[in-house]
Amino acid sequence: MGGERVADFETLFDEYGDKVYGLAYRLMGNRDDAMDISQEVFVKIFRNLKAFKGQSTLATWVYRITYNTCMDELRRRKIKQVSIADKSDLADDNTPVEEIYEADERKEAVHNALYKLDDDQRAIIVMRDIQGLSYEEIAEVLQCPLGTVKSRLSRARLNLKEILKDYMELFNEAGV
């Protein structure tokens, strides 16, 4: 491999390495999966670095690959799960979401609630509220119209609130 490509990769990794891992972790819900997904993502990035033509920004391209890789994996698991005759414990995920025991009750509640959302709804909350991407950036990552981002985010936030309704006393005080 050319030294130039390696150098490109170094730069890119220093900029996005942690973000890819973080995004994968929040989408998949545990460290093992986050590690596996990150590997897959960087292999894909490295293979396609030359092909990247900058129609989108490098950042959204990297996040898109991460997002798509996670969604493909989650979809694959679902198909597998359904095709396995034993439907009694459908709710049991192949790889369990890591339970976190935060000193902060609110964080713990939100973390656990996130994984009760549909995958695409969790993704949009993760990108907007955790990662802090703009609506426009998210539209580029998801390759969808701005209106889609808004409707999906809107639905996701309402659902998250619904899931958290038993913990609502944690979220009542104003201006935290």
Binding site: D18, Y21, L23, V110, L114, R157, F171, N172, E173
Partner: peptide, 14 residues
Amino acid sequence: NIAAACKDLGFPDP
């Protein structure tokens, strides 16, 4: 407040 709690979660370090 829920959105703020999400933001607090952040990304873990690799």
